[in-house]
Structure formats: C-alpha cells, structure tokens
Design a protein around this nucleic acid. Structure first.
Lengths: 184, 184
DNA sequence: ACAGGCATGTAAATAGTTACATGATTCG
DNA sequence: CGAATCATGTAACTATTTACATGCCTGT
C-alpha cells in the first residue's frame, strides 16, 4: 500500500501545513525564516513534492485564488498527519555540517598566523550575523503557541553565542602563539 | 590560463597532501578521521579530482607500488601550493547544517511531551557518541606539529559538550512543562 | 584457503540549487 | 506606469553518496 519513503522535504511540508493551510509560496517563506538554518527547501523541491504528496493522499489542494491570481493552498489529510507522527517517532538520522571555515582553519599552517587569524575572524563575523538575525526573530514567537519552535530558535541563539565565544578565544590563542616570534 | 574554479574537494586534497605524499586511499582515510565531521569526501570525489588536479599541474602522481600492488602517491606542486594559499586567503563561504533532530523537534507539537522528549534524547545520544570519538582522537595530535588541526578538534569537542548540555536542559524543560498535567 | 584490508576506479542514483519563464496584483 | 511581491512551475546543473567491479597482499 505505501510507496517509496518520503523525502525530508515532504515532512517539512507536512509539518508546516499542520498549523493551517498554506500555499507552496507561503511554505517556502515560512521555511526561510524558521527552519532554514538547519533545514532548507527550495521551490524546486517544494512544488514537485506537493504534487507527490497530493497524489499520495497525504495533503489536499484547495483552490484559493487571490483576486484573479491562481493560488492553491494545501491541507494535511488524516493520513498525512499519521505519516508525520510516524516520522517524528523515528530517531533522527541526518546530522550534517559543512563548514568551510573549519576546513580552512584545519589547513591554516600554510599561512602566517596574521593571515590564519583572519579565517577565524570571518567565521566569527558570520556567526555574529546569524545570531543577530535569530535574536530579531525571537520576539515574533510566543511561548504558548509555539513552544517547540521557540526552543529550536533559542538553540540557534545559544549555539551562535557559543561559537562566537570560541572564535574570540581562538583568535587570541593564534595571536598569542605568534607574538613570541615563532614564525609558523 | 586558469580553468574552472576548483571544487572544495580539490582543496581538501591539496591541504592533505601538503604535509607529505599520499595515495587516494590514504587521503580518504585521513579525511575520515579528521575533517569528516565538517567536510567529508568520498572515493567518487577523490579519484576523479586527483586526475583533474594532476592534469592542471597542481599535483604530481608518482608510482609507488607496495609489492606487486599498484599504487600512486601524489605530491603538491609549487602551483598547487599557491592555489591552496590563495583559497585560504578568501573568506569562507559555505556554512551549512542539516540537523534532522532539530527539524523533528520543531514539529514536536504533533506528539505528546513524553514522545517529544525522545527526539531530544536521540540528539543527545548522537552528540555524546561524536564527543567520545573526538576525545579518543585528541591524544593522537601533538600541539607542536598540528596546532590548527588540534584547535579544530577541540572546537568539535567543545561544540558537542555544549550541545549535550543543551539537550539535557531541554529534556528537563519539556518534562517540566508536561508535569503540571498540561496535555499538549 | 579465505577473510580483511589495501588500492583504484566508475556508474547510477539521489539530492539540492539556480536560474529562468510566466503572469497577476498591489503600492507608490 | 514601474517595481516589488505573490504565485507556480521547470530545466539544467552541480554535488555527493552508494554500490559495485577489480585485483593484490597479509595474516591465520
């Protein structure tokens, strides 16, 4: 009865729709200011996936034009809800990180310390930017209706706080090692 | 004169080769117990990339059979070294994270708290495992010859320490919110 | 003899991004 | 009117993983 396993994008969609009907465009917008930091989705994934979910009976599309502009909003069906819960009950499998800054730092012995420290500074600037954006998002969530999204958001804030701090300490350490006049 | 920009895998190879000649197989093994946690590479990337780098004159392959078993080790050329340094001087661009645990937690309102907390427990177990493996790696590096790889390794240890702690606190919070008898 | 590790490589599948095409609506 | 935004979708590209094929060498 059940066909191929669903993609992760499928569950992002089911999860987003659970709180109310949304168009593909709105799903994309929601992803972009919430899960994007640990799970992104592009139109190229969302629209084909909505079609598949619809064919599998896990969501239902409803015509909801705005004026003369065609628009379809989707709702999760009972089957879709069950599918989402079944997925949530499975232990998570994907934990990936691709950090070009850490990769460069790993090979930084090829540069003098004054240049190596620039790598860590770049890493810090990036995390500081993310931190700011996450903190701006924080007041838009309220504890009552979105407790879990708020936990996840605070995880991101704490994470970037920690990372910025690590960068500062690492910058210090690189410069301290350089000062005695040891040319790397 | 210079052709297409090199892939990130190309720089992983150049960086690994900088400390001495290695075969493709050895590069893969090195990646697997060092950069893998923030930058992986598979045979399907390494071998074709070695060929391209060789054709571009950035590495040089040397026949180095072990007995009758064919084997090629590669060395970085002067051009390759310059290419690596030029890349290291560019600010890093890729900072990606895909964490299925955070995604599930984000949607955890679909489950009762007793099941939601299991998501965080899984996340914690995973990071605890990574933390253990990283700590095992630590004594194999010595400060003198591998200062930057050691910094990166300690970053991983600190990161997983922080994450495990966040999980513990979050588990507590979910259970505390459940105890007053609020059925989510 | 055979298992496991060393060693090189490719084919196919999967995932994901980017860029584009199309067209309507709203706001200044 | 023009720009931005709403809205849907696809094609092409890039990246990456997985699985497999091949074959030698070492230790039991």
């Amino acid at each position: 009865m059940d066909s191929d396993p669903l993609s992760a994008t499928a569950y992002v969609i089911l999860g987003m729709l659970r709180r109310g009907p949304l168009s593909g465009y709105e799903i994309k917008a929601m992803v972009d200011n919430s899960t994007r930091f640990f799970w992104a989705a592009s139109y190229g994934q969302i629209y084909p996936e909505l079609r598949r979910l619809s064919e599998a009976g896990l969501v239902e599309g409803i015509d909801a034009p705005t004026g003369g502009r065609r628009r379809t909003v989707y709702e999760v069906t009972a089957d879709g809800e069950e599918e989402l819960k079944a997925w949530l009950r499975q232990p998570p499998e994907t934990y990936e990180m691709r950090d070009e800054g850490l990769l460069k730092l790993f090979f930084a012995a090829a540069l003098p310390p004054q240049e190596a420290v620039e790598i860590v500074r770049s890493m810090r600037h990036y995390r500081e930017g993310v931190n700011r954006r996450l903190r701006e998002l924080e007041p838009t969530k309220d504890e009552e209706t979105a407790a879990y999204p708020l936990m996840v958001l605070r995880c991101g804030i704490e994470y970037t706080d920690w990372f910025v701090d690590w960068c500062k300490r690492t910058e210090e350490r690189i410069l301290a090692a350089a000062r005695p006049g040891k040319q790397s």
